Computed example of a mutant assay.
Amino acid sequence: MAIPTDNNQLERLLKEIQFNDQGLIPAIAQSHDSKEVLMMAWMNEDAIKETLETGRVCYYSRSRSKLWRKGESSGQIQTLKNFRIDCDRDTILLFVEQIGVACHTGRRSCFFEEVSNDGQIKIVADVLKSPDDLYGK
């Protein structure tokens, strides 16, 4: 993973990114080995900086209005393997090594509901870890 090695490189990268009017950009986390899409969350400048500087994925929690280090309460950590920006520079794709499950429901991926041709929603992935165990409820 090529991480910007100095502040000038990092600042140049951040100027290229097209944040929305709230200073956020969507970030899709995908397993680096299986290529499974795990989740989507939001990042701001500080989350991107921390992710690139530490190699541990950090997001911005809109509900808590603060940085959210993936796995800080659940232990389900994401380690950055590759950081990509789409052609419009308004979406980030993170290839990650996922420790444990990615979804707060206890499933590997947040994308566990499938819509059939007749509009029915079907659950296509089992809970692997109880959310109570993940978050100590």
Rank of each mutant, 00 (worst) to 15 (best):
residue 83 F to I: 12
residue 74 S to G: 03
residue 118 D to P: 02
residue 125 A to M: 14
residue 74 S to Y: 01
residue 47 A to I: 10
residue 120 Q to F: 03
residue 133 D to L: 12
residue 64 R to A: 10
residue 84 R to P: 02
residue 93 L to I: 12
residue 39 M to I: 14
residue 58 C to M: 11
residue 103 C to G: 01
residue 117 N to R: 15
residue 56 R to C: 10
residue 84 R to A: 06
residue 63 S to Q: 07
residue 82 N to H: 07
residue 118 D to Y: 04
residue 57 V to M: 01
residue 115 V to T: 15
residue 116 S to M: 14
residue 126 D to Y: 08
residue 66 K to G: 04
residue 42 W to C: 13
residue 105 T to Q: 13
residue 63 S to P: 09
residue 92 I to Y: 00
residue 104 H to M: 11
residue 98 Q to M: 06
residue 131 P to V: 13
residue 120 Q to I: 07
residue 48 I to T: 10
residue 90 D to L: 06
residue 90 D to R: 09
residue 79 T to E: 11
residue 90 D to M: 06
residue 110 C to S: 09
residue 46 D to V: 08
residue 129 K to L: 15
residue 84 R to I: 03
residue 102 A to E: 00
residue 127 V to C: 08
residue 44 N to W: 12
residue 70 K to D: 00
residue 131 P to I: 12
residue 48 I to C: 04
residue 62 R to G: 07
residue 44 N to C: 14
residue 87 C to H: 07
residue 63 S to Y: 08
residue 49 K to S: 08
residue 66 K to I: 03
residue 90 D to P: 04
residue 49 K to C: 10
residue 67 L to T: 01
residue 118 D to A: 12
residue 120 Q to G: 05
residue 100 G to F: 04
residue 49 K to H: 05
residue 113 E to C: 09
residue 109 S to E: 03
residue 61 S to K: 07
residue 97 E to D: 15
residue 118 D to T: 15
residue 111 F to D: 04
residue 76 Q to T: 12
residue 48 I to F: 02
residue 128 L to R: 14
residue 83 F to R: 04
residue 114 E to S: 09
residue 133 D to C: 07
residue 101 V to K: 04
residue 114 E to G: 04
residue 100 G to W: 06
residue 101 V to S: 03
residue 56 R to P: 02
residue 132 D to R: 13
residue 60 Y to F: 15
residue 97 E to F: 09
residue 50 E to M: 15
residue 72 E to R: 05
residue 120 Q to Y: 06
residue 128 L to S: 10
residue 40 M to D: 02
residue 111 F to K: 10
residue 43 M to S: 10
residue 124 V to C: 08
residue 101 V to L: 09
residue 60 Y to N: 04
residue 132 D to P: 04
residue 133 D to A: 14
residue 67 L to A: 01
residue 76 Q to W: 01
residue 109 S to R: 01
residue 46 D to A: 13
residue 47 A to T: 07
residue 39 M to Q: 01
residue 97 E to T: 15
residue 40 M to K: 06
residue 126 D to L: 11
residue 113 E to M: 13
residue 49 K to T: 13
residue 79 T to C: 05
residue 39 M to D: 00
residue 80 L to C: 00
residue 59 Y to G: 00
residue 83 F to W: 05
residue 61 S to T: 06
residue 85 I to H: 03
residue 124 V to R: 14
residue 64 R to T: 09
residue 95 F to G: 11
residue 113 E to F: 10
residue 43 M to N: 10
residue 106 G to Q: 11
residue 112 F to I: 08
residue 77 I to W: 05
residue 41 A to I: 02
residue 95 F to S: 13
residue 47 A to P: 02
residue 59 Y to P: 00
